[in-house]
Simulated scan of single mutants.
Amino acid sequence: MKTLLYSSVVLVVVVAVLRNQFSKQFVNMADLVLDQIYFGLCKLDGVQEFNQRSPNYMEGNWIPVHKELKVVGVPGKGNLPQELVGTTYARIGPNLKCWPPTNKHHAFNGEAMIHTIHMDTNSSIKYSNNWIRENLPNKRWDDIGKECGPTFGFADLNDGGLVLFRYLVLKMKSKLKGIVHPPQERIQAGSTAIVHHAEKIFACSELFLPFEIKMSSDSVNPIGFYDYHGKLTNRKNGPVDGTFSAHPVIDEKTGDLYYASTNQAAGSVAGGQPFLDLGVVDKTGVLYKLFHIPIRNPTSAFYHDIMLTENYVIIPETSLKKDVTRLNSYKTLTFYNETEPMRFGIIGRDARPQMK
């Protein structure tokens, strides 16, 4: 396995060199060849069988919504409580723009879409839905969906198999075309939760930096990734950028926002030691506490949520683990370790960070 991986890495380098030596015609031909290699690997890896097994994420309510609607009247019965009139309810979720996918599909895969229901009057409801159309390098929104080419996502990693070879083919395609992709933390807007805090609205996920948006009852305007004035970037340990939380918790009394996350992108295990970040943002939007807490390796697969009491922050650490080295043996990225029972980290809310 390692020999094949090393050979593939060498091939990536060769492709990069050839790109600088030959014509556009060669690049197009080589790209087509890589596409055939990718789809051949998909067949060997059982991608179609994975997507068609029961249950799956390809049928029923799992099918993404592909039409964006604006202020569509929704029929209803009765009257709304007066307190709700003029308010807007919003939810967010992944909504894959290119369908059907060519890779193994999972509910976590897809661009972020926000659905809103605006209570216009006590008897009138208006519905709208919008993708968060980030203005990112090499992401042309109008081209997404025209043709579903080779791609990569969570289910590919979590099903093991030939995933590393398919990933290397995608790397070769990028090298061939001279495409430089953003780091994981800036791939897209989060699609797990919407958070309103300190007069800002964020699309959140534990994999990415928080993404600021502006919202109205019928539109979503992307602003960009937010790093709390540089405090979530230029890090000394692991990746340059930090990540946020899928579900930050806001103290209703103080207005402070608490989040916990561990950036598990490339380079995250700095010197063999992964870290979990615990941050506290005051009601004005200032990140004034940031803990870097050493955690066990392999880490939990997700640090998805936290609990807040009057005096403590409680962070669950589950027995579902994540270990990227397992991919070298065709195994799944995540696995259940029954020898490590679930634990809870408890930190006093009056604690002060010991490291910067």
Rank of each mutant, 00 (worst) to 15 (best):
Y127G: 00
K177W: 08
A265F: 04
Q354W: 12
G40A: 08
T151E: 11
E338Y: 11
S7A: 15
D305G: 08
P316I: 10
P150E: 04
S124P: 00
T309C: 08
E199M: 06
F108C: 09
I37M: 10
V33H: 05
R352I: 15
P75I: 03
V286E: 14
P150A: 05
G73T: 13
C42E: 11
G345A: 07
F26D: 10
Y38E: 03
T102V: 04
V85L: 04
V9A: 14
V65C: 10
G279F: 12
N234M: 10
V71G: 05
F302C: 08
G242Y: 02
S268N: 09
K177D: 06
Q36M: 12
L96D: 00
I314G: 09
K171F: 09
P316F: 10
T243R: 05
I144A: 06
L207V: 11
F165N: 04
H292L: 09
Y330P: 00
Y228C: 12
V324Q: 12
V15G: 01
S205T: 11
A107I: 14
E83V: 06
P222N: 08
N221D: 14
D31E: 07
L80V: 07
I201H: 03
R326E: 06
D143R: 13
T116I: 02
C204I: 01
K322R: 15
V286S: 11
M307K: 11
Y259D: 01
L84I: 03
Y259L: 10
K289A: 09
L5P: 00
C148I: 04
Y336E: 14
N103Y: 09
V74K: 07
F154P: 00
E317V: 13
Q21W: 15
